[in-house]
Write a protein that binds this DNA or RNA. Sequence first.
DNA 1: CACGCGTGGGT
DNA 2: TACCCAAGCGT
Length: 310
Amino acid sequence: MPAHPPQSLPQNAAKTSLHVPVFAWYATHARDLPWRRPEASAWSVLVSELMLQQTPVKRVLPVHQAWLERWPTPAALAVEPTGEAVRAWGRLGYPRRALRLHAAAVAIAERHDGEVPADLDDLLALPGVGEYTAAAVASFAYGRRHVVLDTNVRRVLGRVLGGVEFPATSLNRAERERAASVVPDEPPHPVGTAATWAVAVMELGALVCTAGAPRCGECPLADQCAWRLAGFPAYDGPPRRGQAWAGTDRQCRGRLMAVLRDADGPVHRSALEAAWSGTATLADQRERCLVSLVADGLAVRTSPETYALP
DNA sequence: CACGCGTGGGT
DNA sequence: TACCCAAGCGT
């Protein structure tokens, strides 16, 4: 019987071989983003995560800053009409996210005394917060240890550990377990915490291990990347669906929302008709989209002939 | 679980 | 130029 039983097992060598170079790389290459600064609030982190869902950092930056200046706390946003959130969302895209963020602010004000929760299940219960975002907020805002698995991390681990160019279409159990297996133990964390590991791997995927034209010459994991070592085998999975755009309801809804956003108050039907017209088919589509926008809570009919943001 | 949901920059 | 796709979520 040992005199001093170990408090915990040492991390295995395979794990550390990933941690050391990635933490070193992150220490010198991390971008200075507002929601990563020490003084950033959990609310700032939550707002950033909602905005970053499918929208690039560069476009999020100015909107995030204006948002936090106007609504420094969830309670400040919660008392506003939802339309103000939609207008402030601007052209980030997927404006339903603005409604979800507003609803999340209301829930935080009502159920959590105005404080963004740190518990994963509490976060998951918030509108617009799914598996990734919950783990990201708990990790980045509160330093909790979670598996943070976004598109960047999936791609990096898929290449380094899986030897494939792109991960499977849907996230499965094996992939979650693989990601979990390389999260730093805590404690101890000889070279960095689980939370720093999460943000560091994401950053690596965003800046170096990119979807197209990865910069392997700058990658701290190049010498142990299974995909590179195998000679960069081409992706052989099912075709990754591209997003149709021209003529879709999504494009039509975007046009209609732009008209509502750019107006100070209610707009007449004719302004919306001008934004999407030409044939009877297009007119039908416009009316269908208008109905769906109202159903989604992104627009309201303010009179028989006028519409506005809610 | 596959699909729909905005927008604009990068190659 | 035409794609490609960017820190996903809800249904």
